[in-house]
């Protein structure tokens, strides 16, 4: 194979692995939810149901078919964009999720826009002035944020900004979003809370990755050529730290989609995570499965993207 094609071959290979992982994950999601205790038909019909009625409903819902054939049916449906029908309110799952997903993505998007640039700047800065006061302050802050659970940050934020100071609304959704300042206010608290949590990890990983490349002979060589500190770090160290940094960012961001459950619940924000929590309490299997798949897909695509950045930023593979 011509050398110039190698990286693309690797990228395609990586995509293939991601697809394979996705199939395995869907398998796991489907059968894990199958294992949930309780029978849907019984729950739907309530305590007064006759055994005949339950059996009839099971038949009608197709629950008597072997699990494997239901899995295949579900998977084919997924591929065609049909996520099934909610057991509880008979609405299309697609419809239930679409609005919520938009909300979740909006929250995740705003958080990404805020946290990634700040985290990268702080991480690179801390590495650049390693051992300085700035570095120490950043390190202490990130460690304290990592060790405080996000519900604590969220609750404290509500207590301080909403209850004591009264600057921000305690609930984000349904708040007045007619003007820019009102919208900023509405999003401020969940975004701040989430940014705190995801940035800490990114800052630490970025700092570590950059410091590792700063200690290489080629950065010392740049110093001996008379390069400024800025040039050494941004021009020589950073390009070689891109792979690990992309992975750290992807890992932190993937948390945004799946790990926002607590934050969405505390701020009563109607996102996918809250939908999934509600679905679990009503045993709405199609909904749970779809939400789980959404989390998995976003996680996988972020990680795959990071890996592809790592492959393509390495000239040994690029040409």
């Amino acid at each position: 194979m011509p050398q110039s094609l190698t990286p693309w071959f690797l990228v395609i290979q990586r995509l293939g692995i991601a697809l394979l992982t996705l199939v395995i994950v869907s398998f796991a999601v489907f059968f894990a939810t199958e294992l949930l205790p309780g029978d849907v038909a019984e729950i739907l019909l309530g305590q007064a149901a006759t055994p005949e009625a339950v059996a009839g409903l099971r038949e009608a819902m197709g629950l008597n078919e072997p699990a494997l054939s239901r899995f295949v049916g579900w998977l084919v449906g997924l591929l065609g964009g049909d996520l099934g029908t909610s057991y509880v309110n008979k609405m299309e799952v697609v419809e239930l999720i679409s609005g919520r997903l938009g909300n979740s993505l909006k929250l995740a998007g705003v958080t990404t826009l805020v946290s990634v640039p700040i985290a990268l700047a702080l991480g690179i800065g801390a590495a650049m002035w390693r051992g300085s006061l700035f570095d120490r302050i950043v390190s202490v802050l990130t460690i304290s944020v990592i060790s405080v659970p996000e519900f604590m940050v969220a609750t404290l934020a509500v207590l301080i900004f909403a209850v004591w100071l009264g600057w921000l609304p305690a609930l984000s959704y349904g708040a007045d979003v007619s003007s820019l300042s009102a919208m900023l206010k509405a999003y401020a608290m969940p975004v701040i809370t989430l940014s705190f949590v995801v940035s800490a990890q990114m800052i630490r990983m970025t700092r570590a990755a950059v410091i590792e490349t700063i200690n290489t002979p080629y950065v010392e060589m740049a110093l001996l050529k008379g390069a400024s500190r800025k040039r050494m770090v941004l021009g020589h160290a950073l390009p070689n730290a891109l792979g690990p940094i992309a992975n750290a960012v992807a890992l932190s961001l993937s948390y945004l989609v799946g790990g926002v459950i607590i934050v969405e619940t505390i701020f009563n924000y109607p996102g996918v995570a809250k939908l999934m929590v509600d679905a679990v309490s009503t045993r709405d299997l199609p909904l749970i499965q779809s939400c789980a798949m959404i989390f998995c897909v976003s996680y996988l695509s972020l990680i795959t993207l990071a890996d592809m950045i790592a492959i393509l930023s390495n000239p040994r593979l690029r040409r």
Binding site: P217, V219, E220, L223, L224, G226, S228, H236, P239, N314
Partner: peptide, 24 residues
């Protein structure tokens, strides 16, 4: 000192393989 490095005095490293930035 940075202004002298490279212009007045310069350096040839032990391992050029390590002293060249692999991504440039």
């Amino acid at each position: 000192r940075a202004s002298v490095r490279g212009t007045e005095v310069s350096y040839v490293p032990q391992s050029a393989a390590a002293a060249f930035n692999p991504s440039k």
